[in-house]
């Protein structure tokens, strides 16, 4: 059988044995989806490509730790790459807070929206893209989008939406369970 016809799980087994050809097939199969998600999260193509490269190198180095009981290969790659993107977003946020005063200077004053509003607007725009999420009540959907696309943690979502932490946690849990019911036939 041609290697490009192998299932993802079979490719993972070969990659764990150091097979570069299998790695290349997995990359071609899933890198565009991952890069789309990373670009959407980081909003910078160059940074998204850096994270994509780091994630695939991590996958190469740690392929022997992949467990099919916990995620499909694609799900595992997304977990790795999104986790790295989230690290960058959170470090960017703490740096951004430090630079807050500088950001509001001269030339951009008339052209820049107040900082903090872009996240919500982006999420609202994203909402129209995601058919699966439209089955959720707006409150649950917004919490899940802020986590998925903006890389926000429970507590950051609570601050952003000005809601109690417990409310945010339960909205995410309920929303994800409801989505699972919707998606169940596909699994």
């Amino acid at each position: 059988m041609n290697i490009s016809e192998l299932e993802d799980i079979q490719l993972m087994g070969r990659i764990a044995s150091g097979d570069r050809e299998a790695f290349a097939v997995l990359f071609e199969r899933h890198a565009p989806l991952m890069l789309g998600v990373l670009t959407r999260m980081l909003r910078r193509r160059d940074e998204a490509e850096e994270v994509l490269q780091e994630a695939f190198l991590q996958a190469w180095d740690r392929a022997d730790t992949y467990s099919p009981q916990r995620a499909t290969p694609r799900g595992w790659l997304l977990l790795i790459s999104r986790s790295r993107a989230i690290d960058r977003i959170r470090s960017r946020q703490s740096r951004s807070r430090r630079e807050d005063a500088v950001l509001k200077e001269d030339a951009w004053k008339s052209e820049v929206e107040p900082i903090g509003t872009e996240s919500l607007e982006e999420s609202e725009r994203a909402a129209s893209l995601h058919g699966a999420l439209t089955v959720l009540p707006v409150d649950q959907r917004r919490c899940i989008e802020l986590a998925f696309f903006e890389g926000l943690s429970h507590s950051q979502i609570a601050d952003t939406l000005d809601q109690p932490l417990g409310t945010v946690k339960s909205r995410i849990l309920l929303g994800m369970r409801k989505l699972r019911d919707q998606l169940a036939p596909a699994f």
């Binding site: 989806l33 890069l35 998600v37 490509e49 009981q69 499909t72 899940i144 998925f148 699994f187």
Partner: peptide, 26 residues
Amino acid sequence: DRELLASTRQVESMAESVEPAAPSEM
């Protein structure tokens, strides 16, 4: 593990709604 598998599949499904992007030659 079972819960994680189901949850990561949901995340995959959400990722599918994003427009893919081809990695650069660089």
